[in-house]
Design a protein around this nucleic acid. Sequence first.
DNA 1: ACATGGTCTGTTAACGTTCACAGGCGCGAG
DNA 2: CTCGCGCCTGTGAACGTTAACAGACCATGT
Lengths: 352, 352
Amino acid sequence: MPSRKPAADGVDRPRLTVMRDVAKLAGVSHQTVSRVLNNHPNVREETRARVLAAMQSLNYRRNLAARTLVTRQSDTLGIIGFETTLFGPASMLYGIESAARDAGYMVSIASVRDLDRRQVLEAVDRLTQHSVDGVIAIAPKQSVTHALAQAPPSLQCVAVGGAGESDAAPTVSIDNALGARLATQHLLDLGHVTVHHAAGPPDWPESFERIEGWRRTLYAAGAVVPPVEHGWWDAESGYAQGQALARDPAVTAVFCSNDRIALGVLRALHEAGKRVPYDVSVVGFDDMPDSGFFVPPLTTVHQDFGELGRRSLGLLLEHMTHSPAAESQPPDHVLVAPQLVVRASSGPAPAR
Amino acid sequence: MPSRKPAADGVDRPRLTVMRDVAKLAGVSHQTVSRVLNNHPNVREETRARVLAAMQSLNYRRNLAARTLVTRQSDTLGIIGFETTLFGPASMLYGIESAARDAGYMVSIASVRDLDRRQVLEAVDRLTQHSVDGVIAIAPKQSVTHALAQAPPSLQCVAVGGAGESDAAPTVSIDNALGARLATQHLLDLGHVTVHHAAGPPDWPESFERIEGWRRTLYAAGAVVPPVEHGWWDAESGYAQGQALARDPAVTAVFCSNDRIALGVLRALHEAGKRVPYDVSVVGFDDMPDSGFFVPPLTTVHQDFGELGRRSLGLLLEHMTHSPAAESQPPDHVLVAPQLVVRASSGPAPAR
DNA sequence: ACATGGTCTGTTAACGTTCACAGGCGCGAG
DNA sequence: CTCGCGCCTGTGAACGTTAACAGACCATGT
């Protein structure tokens, strides 16, 4: 691995202030400064104050690299990101980062373009080299958690968002099945005979679990389960699926696997002359910031991505503290409950 | 500053493999291993191969903390992020990160909740402590670039997205005035007598520059410049502005400061019975992934956030290499040109 | 008076790299 | 043959912090 970055021209060496400088000014040894810095109990109050004052006046910052070298702790967490330009992942990222900051950690991010094992392991490797203390993977597919299992065992990893259960790593995710049930039941309760589904990609657990939740709800209600079309997560795919649904007069209610798909479906229905919600009801999933301003405002399943991020951080920290103790028991899984947000896009089934 | 993170229980010390181990196995000195690692020219080919093989078989990874300690280079860049859950900032973040990876850098992120000087400086401080080699600030407001000027002079900073010119730091941003001109001129060319504007927050340079670009274009065309309402960047604000605009029969064309505002305007117009584009034309700014699936598909100004991220990284790297040389000349500013994307939401002015 | 133990502080040795320097070796020129 | 000058390699000392240990000091109980 050649290092092709601009070599720091060794011309300027500002000689930053270090512990010894502080120590000299405060008239103590560098070790005492260290003790003050690390809140050791056995420092006389007056000494501590003197050291603190010296640090202040010299504008001293401790050198984390040196600290990391000896403690093998970097106070840095790694995040493996995927599709972080989208609202969901971006929000999780943000949630993780703010929670991490509050806990005194820095976060480094390693994005992957695809979720294959090679790229994920490479990301883990880069993070490991930068000696992160733990890793959170924004991992919407099983392949990631599997890859994570191959990470050095000393490195604690947790997966967030997507793949529910997994014996490879602890996970935090939305209760997708519950969300799907809420949406579907809501539509059934409105009198719709059945509910169609505009799904996401079939190999994504998030999509799969929503399909299952939808299917089971229909089944439990004795409703027929219409065939499901698969697509991608975007409005374009929703538009295509929506066009097909609009052609079928039996369709009075559509549950979409996310809000972007719903946006496409809304447009397709509109162009086909179907009025929402009078002719067809539409429900989404995610509750993106502007979903309340679609035409009409979208009924959807709200998921709290920030909470997801915070919970995953909590779980990681927990595992980092007593890792060897909990070695025996299987990794735990946190499920966060989503909430139905009813707006104008869903209404009573049209009279027949 | 107390450190309240879980203390690493010093029970397990796996004693990772270090240079000395590799050296011993290859029958050379640790220094030769270092040379191989850093691609120094003066290593016999055969020796290099032996060392490489030893590294391979021991699965050696170099300890970056130690390296950072002595070289004062961490191969890590810092990003100061703001509102990173939104599409624009999130995309820039991603663009920066991928470009950084290609250049051999890791990125650490420090989000700020608000853009006041204190928080920005605190973010810089956290990044400095983790000894980043440079900083890119996603800085939509002047206050950030000003704060950046207070950063330790040894730390190279660039600002991206938003505030155009600034003598405090080099910047990379979209040519907002140009974008506004493209949008406004497009509507004028369609025969609209004038163009109204649904603006963003007045104290954001991005918003301000778009207003100016819009205003100047109208002025140059001899069109009257309608009063402008200010709002936030979201659909809710667009909706409110849209309701007011819908009441005014003179309004036949609206240029919105971003796509989310446009979404709200579209809804307001729709609810007021105005048909887009037959009664009123609407143009947005950003070209978010799903803007092509609004009802109707949105004509908008496309900005390439990823490119913005990449360019800012390039600029930063450039400044890091020959920083003392370019000391004298003022910081440079890169402007990226946006592009008009014509879709269905804009059309000829209605006959009167 | 003397051991005992607690509190506070200083000394020395890691941690794993890179840098500066010093050598050994071979080869062509004097 | 010897000198000098390239290559290639090894030795020692940083870098700035924390960990381990030892010592000084003070109070307390016998």
